[in-house]
């Protein structure tokens, strides 16, 4: 999937993946896609909850080799 920016949250624990995803989205334009990499398994549910509550769209959420990859489209 194409993306405009990437944020690697590997090694970070709650709440850093969410708080820093929010920061990473801040300077992006509406409709752009942020790819987030995380190793915290709690991020899977948190990222969906973040999308639900902020109006951004979680386009995909996948696991690969112990890492969780998210594609977040900015509102």
């Amino acid at each position: 999937m194409n993306f405009d920016k990437e944020f690697d949250a590997s090694g970070m624990s709650c709440p850093l993946p969410i708080v820093k995803t929010k920061k990473a989205l801040a300077d992006m334009a509406s409709g752009q896609v942020l790819r987030v990499i995380a190793t915290d398994c709690g991020a899977v549910k948190d990222m969906q909850a973040f999308a639900d509550q902020t109006g951004n769209t979680l386009m995909a959420s996948e696991e690969a080799g112990g890492k969780y990859i998210f594609f977040m489209k900015k509102k």
Binding site: C14, P15, I18, V19, T21, K22, F50, Q53, T54
Partner: peptide
């Protein structure tokens, strides 16, 4: 600090 920073991230 965890709850406040998270809530702020959620708007």
């Amino acid at each position: 600090f965890i709850l406040a920073s998270t809530a702020a991230a959620l708007g």
